[in-house]
């Protein structure tokens, strides 16, 4: 194809690049609340949770905290079939993002203080999880 020569900003040609690394601390789901309380004592505040679809079985949950414009990331690997621990009882600000993840990825959070029951963005008749590459089907609780 002769078109390639014209494309100025070609994202299609792979160039060797070092992989960008985000500094995160891998922890176990069980020790999550303890770690968060520890960070909270040090004056960190909650920024957000990011859910990343990994494969058929699991997702990554990245918890981001901030203190004076310096960020800390905690990462847990969460199996899709199990429910994740909710941190909204110690960090009220997390309830919205946990509901969002529940909507988009179908991960259930245990002990969510304000549970929208998968109806934050989605309509009642929707049974799919729109942000997953491999769909998770919801069973009625």
């Amino acid at each position: 194809m002769d078109e390639k020569t014209y494309s100025e900003n070609s994202a299609d040609k792979p160039v060797e690049q070092p992989k960008a690394v985000l500094e995160t601390r891998q922890i176990q789901a069980g020790s999550l609340k303890g770690e968060i309380l520890l960070l909270k004592d040090q004056g960190y505040r909650f920024v957000t949770i990011t859910c990343v679809d990994l494969d058929q079985e699991s997702v990554d949950l990245i918890y981001t905290f901030d203190r004076g414009l310096e960020m800390v990331h905690l990462r847990i690997r969460q199996p899709k079939a199990e429910s994740a621990p909710s941190v909204s009882d110690i960090l009220f600000a997390a309830f919205l993002v946990e509901n969002e993840i529940q909507d988009q990825f179908g991960i259930c959070f245990d002990g969510l203080v304000l549970d929208f029951q998968n109806r934050l963005y989605l309509e009642e008749e929707v049974a799919r999880t729109p942000f997953c590459r491999y769909n998770v089907t919801r069973n009625s609780k």
Partner: peptide
């Protein structure tokens, strides 16, 4: 020039 495709994670 911005060439190539990114790889990895960033915020």
């Amino acid at each position: 020039k911005f060439k190539g495709s990114p790889e990895g994670e960033a915020v």
